[in-house]
């Protein structure tokens, strides 16, 4: 089965990069330190036999109790059904990770979105700005400790203040 080949490749990669390996519902998951992301992505891209060369999705999950943010890469291929998930763990207080734009130009918008909503900074991104929210928005709403403004507060914001 292709999948077992892939599982083995990912397991080897996990050992090489001091990462953790698991299989979640059949999908190989590689959990690594944020600093080794580029290596892991490059390696996954060049897996012999089952390359995962297509960046399908890039997102982040916030874990305040562990004080971590996981940047999650889903790599698939346009040549077969293989798929792997790479989780890069970064510090929640200072989430910095290397950009993937140099590998996939398509990571541009996904990283900007991740920065916008989760506050992860991507080193080397050519144009890291907010994309979905407006430029002077405060906070990163997808973080678990983000407090949504109350209805009264939002009502107050909607009314244009004198001089605005």
């Amino acid at each position: 089965m292709e999948n077992s080949v892939l599982l083995k490749l990912v397991e080897e990669l996990a050992q090489k990069l001091d990462g953790e390996f698991e299989a979640s519902l059949g999908t190989p998951v590689l959990k690594i330190k944020g600093a080794r992301t580029t290596e892991a992505l490059q390696a996954a891209r060049n897996f012999s036999g089952t390359p995962c060369e297509f960046l399908h999705d890039l997102t982040a999950v916030d874990y305040p109790d562990r004080n971590e943010i996981e940047v999650v890469y889903h790599l698939t291929s346009l040549r077969g059904p293989q798929m792997i998930r790479i989780k890069a763990v970064v510090d929640r207080n200072n989430p910095v990770i290397d950009t993937a734009v140099r590998i996939w130009p398509g990571a541009d918008f996904m990283e900007r979105e991740c920065f916008d909503l989760m506050g992860v900074k991507f080193n080397g991104h050519p144009d890291l700005r907010r994309i979905l929210l407006w430029d002077d928005f405060e906070g990163h709403p997808l973080r678990k400790d983000y407090v949504t403004p109350s209805v009264e507060e939002r009502k107050r914001l909607r009314i244009m203040q004198p001089g605005e």
Binding site: H56, D57, T59, V61, D62, V72, H74, P105, G106, D108, F109, M110, E113, L142
Partner: peptide, 29 residues
């Protein structure tokens, strides 16, 4: 484009994290 959902469940009735990947957002690039 491909629609993908990434759901992280913590065992409760609500998703811990739900990520939507739509074709349009990425195709615009």
């Amino acid at each position: 484009g491909e629609i993908a959902y990434y759901v992280v469940s913590d065992g409760s009735t609500k998703p811990y994290r739900l990520r939507l990947r739509g074709g349009s957002f990425i195709n615009i690039q």
